[in-house]
Design a binder for these strands. Sequence first.
DNA 1: ATAATTGCATAGTCAAACTATGTAATTGAA
DNA 2: TTCAATTACATAGTTTGACTATGCAATTAT
Lengths: 155, 155
Amino acid sequence: MPKSDHGPGSAAELLDVVVRLNRWVTHHSDWPLPLAQVRVLSQIDEWGQARTSDLARVEHCSQPTMTTRVQRLQARGWVARASDPLDARATMLTLTEEGCAVLADARATRARVLEALMARMDAPERESVQAATRTLGALLDIAYAHRRHEQNKTP
Amino acid sequence: MPKSDHGPGSAAELLDVVVRLNRWVTHHSDWPLPLAQVRVLSQIDEWGQARTSDLARVEHCSQPTMTTRVQRLQARGWVARASDPLDARATMLTLTEEGCAVLADARATRARVLEALMARMDAPERESVQAATRTLGALLDIAYAHRRHEQNKTP
DNA sequence: ATAATTGCATAGTCAAACTATGTAATTGAA
DNA sequence: TTCAATTACATAGTTTGACTATGCAATTAT
C-alpha cells in the first residue's frame, strides 16, 4: 500500500491511474524504437505537417535537439521535408508512407497489449471503458480549447 | 486532422487519449526536477520499499543506470537504504519524509493543472470523470492481477 | 535600406545511459 | 562441507544524446 494517498475521484487519482496505465502498457509492449522518436512521428501525424521548432516546443526539448531527431527520422525515410512556400526559412515536415506505417505499427503494438486486458472484461465493463475514453476525450477538448486563451505568456 | 485514425471506443483510442492527457499535464506544469527521478520516487512509494534491480526493470533501464539514479536520490536525502535482513546482498530502498514530501508536491503540482481543467466542467461532467477514473482503476486491477500469471517468462 | 527578428543548422561541452566487469552474499550439488 | 553457479549491487570506460552558444539565411519592422 502506498504511503501517500488521495481522495477518491480526485484529479490526482485520475493522473495516477493514467500514468500507471501508460507505464503498464509501455512495459508490456516491447518496441525496439526510442519512444521519443515515435512521439515525434505522432505529433507530425496529429498536425498533418509541422515545423522543427513547433515539435521542439511540444516535446519539451531544445530546437537543436529536435533538429537532430528529425534528421534521424528523415534518414530512416519516415519524415519528408519540403520548403514552406510562404516562408523560405521554414521547412514543413510530413510523414512518408513508411513513417505512417511505422507509427501505425507502434500504435497497434501498444493497442494489442491493452486489448488483451480488455478481453478479460465482460461487456458492461468494456462499455464503461468506452465511456471513459469519451469522457477523457472531452477533457482533452477543453484542454486544447483552453490552450488558445493563454498563448501570449511571458517567456 | 491526423492521417491515421482508429475506430471509436477502441483500445488504441484510449491509449491515444491517455498519452495526450499525460503530455498536456506535463507540458502545463513546470517542474524543475527530472521526471525520471520522480517516477522512481513514485515506484518506491507504490511498493513501500523496493530493490535497485526491481526499479530498473519497471523503469526500463539498466541496473547500473538505476544505481546512479538512486544514488542521486539518496544524496538529496529523499531515499534511504537499509540492508535486507533476509538477504545481505540486497538493499531495501524506502522514501524518507522529505522524499514523500517531494513526491506529494510533484503530484499536487500536476493535479492542480488537471483541476483547473475540471473546474471548467459542469457537475455531471465531473461525475463522468470520476466514473472514468474508477473504470481505468478497474482496468489496472486486471493488469496487476494478470501480471502474476506471467512472471515466469523466458528472458 | 538597414536593423531586429525568426527558423533552422552546426560546433563544442557535458550529463547520462549502456556494456562489461568486479565483489560480496546466497544457493545448490557433489 | 566445499566449491561452482547464481544473484544483487557497484564501478570503469565508452558512447549516445541533450544542451548552450553561435552562425547563416529569410523575413519583418522602422
